[in-house]
């Protein structure tokens, strides 16, 4: 796709997974939307940071553990997952509580690089300002 048709899409995720359908819906829209080859970023704010928690085990609640699917996003060229530091801190979480998510860089001999980018609130506000389209979940 030519660069002039490429738009910056930001998906804002603010809900914890499983309690409502928002997190899964967002993930599905991101995966389907990836076919349009836009410049996609994901933001995790407020309880949305819980979507990225390590060691999610849904066996006892009888739901699909879709946390594994975030690790496939790199294959779909979705490689910028912005996590808000203040949202983590407010919830007593640190970066170490989240699952590692990486992508393979084709232009660098398939080296694995981190997809998670930790930003503060001011940087998140700047990210929002830089987008063409924002989708909220």
């Amino acid at each position: 796709m030519s660069d002039e048709n490429r738009k910056k899409f930001l998906y804002i995720n603010r809900k914890a997974p499983y309690g409502t359908i928002y997190a899964l819906e967002s993930l599905e829209v991101v995966l389907i939307g990836a076919a349009f080859e836009q410049d996609v970023s994901l933001a995790f704010i407020d309880d949305g940071v819980y979507q990225l928690m390590a060691n999610q085990d849904t066996a006892a609640v009888g739901m699909k553990n879709f946390s594994k699917t975030y690790r496939a996003l790199g294959d779909y060229e979705v490689r910028k997952l912005y996590v808000e530091k203040e949202s983590l801190a407010e919830r007593g979480l640190t970066a170490e509580n989240l699952m590692p998510i990486v992508y393979e860089d084709e232009d660098d001999d398939y080296a694995e690089k981190p997809s998670l980018i930790f930003v503060d609130r001011a940087e998140m506000a700047a990210l929002i300002r830089s987008q063409d389209v924002i989708l909220s979940f």
């Binding site: 928002y22 929002i128 063409d132 389209v133 924002i134 909220s136 979940f137």
Partner: peptide
């Protein structure tokens, strides 16, 4: 405005 951001 250039974009709309919905806070749900």
């Amino acid at each position: 405005k250039a974009r709309v951001c919905a806070w749900l």
